[in-house]
């Protein structure tokens, strides 16, 4: 695939350095643990899956990483485009919000949390461009058409608003809306949750294609181990707020070390 105009993240010296470093990330809701003492590093181009049963702390951790929820303690650092490692929670709000709408993407389980439901698909995709100063309607529209095409939404739907879209289309629109600024890191929280199996499969294929074409780094939360296997390089297993096992996805799923992971794998990964 021709990717020259997509500014893929070409390999350079900083590819050897982590994009995100998480040190002892901990979030309490009052006395209750959301997540505790989480440590890991994410490298450029890597796809990390966070798996675990309901209530294990996946969303809590993801929200802490993406600056949507301040951790109670711990440090989360991100390497910005000029190569500096920055503590996310020491950045000011303007810098954080800028990061969230340019360098990062966030794909919500419920499309209505990530889309403007009352404005057209074109404007949903164009919003980030306008937010960073795009002021040429024709160019914005052309870019929106291009992105709709990449997520397999027909050009003639560009002026429809997402309320007229199916669940799968909404998720694809949400993805286009996020990727239009060529982010380096995309967070996803159960992006295929609540969709029919066949719709899920198509969406997963699409995500997998985009991730490899664009060289994206992704942190994806899922309770579906099949999703983790299909998309991720590495998997992190959570239980009661703690990371109990981590490793290459194939290893974790084929040869789980922890009893809990073995249970998880055997109960869900039925052929």
């Amino acid at each position: 695939m021709q990717t020259s105009e997509m500014t893929p993240h070409t390999a350079d010296a900083s590819d050897d350095l982590p994009l995100l470093r998480v040190s002892n990330a901990t979030k309490y809701y009052g006395d209750r643990i959301g997540c505790k003492d989480v440590n890991f590093e994410l490298y450029p181009g890597e796809v990390l899956a966070i798996v675990g049963e309901s209530g294990s702390g996946k969303t809590t951790l993801l929200n802490c990483l993406s600056t949507r929820l301040a951790p109670t303690s711990g440090v989360i650092e991100y390497r910005n485009r000029v190569g500096a490692m920055r503590n996310l929670y020491e950045m000011n709000e303007a810098e954080r919000r800028m990061l969230m709408r340019t360098d990062w993407g966030f794909v919500h389980q419920h499309a209505s949390d990530g889309l403007r439901m009352s404005v057209s698909a074109g404007a949903n995709v164009g919003e980030r461009l306008m937010a960073i100063g795009a002021r040429h309607y024709g160019d914005i529209r052309a870019t929106a058409i291009d992105w709709l095409d990449r997520v397999e939404i027909a050009e003639d739907r560009i002026d429809d608003d997402p309320r007229a879209f199916s669940g799968g289309m909404r998720q694809r629109l949400q993805i286009a809306r996020n990727l239009v600024t060529n982010p380096r890191l995309v967070f996803m929280d159960e992006p295929t949750g609540g969709l029919d199996v066949s719709v899920q499969a198509r969406l997963l294929d699409l995500i997998r294609g985009l991730v490899s074409d664009l060289g994206l780094s992704v942190i994806i939360v899922t309770h579906d181990l099949a999703v983790a296997r299909l998309l991720s390089d590495r998997t992190l297993v959570m239980r009661r707020g703690h990371v109990i096992e981590t490793g290459l996805t194939d290893q974790v799923l084929d040869d789980p070390q922890e009893a809990y992971t073995q249970l998880l794998v055997s109960s869900i990964l039925q052929p």
């Binding site: 404007a123 306008m130 937010a131």
Partner: peptide, 16 residues
């Protein structure tokens, strides 16, 4: 924070 992209979203919608 001078985040005015939304204002142009409105104008975009008008033109569309």
């Amino acid at each position: 924070l001078e985040e005015y992209g939304l204002m142009h979203v409105k104008l975009y919608e008008d033109i569309a």
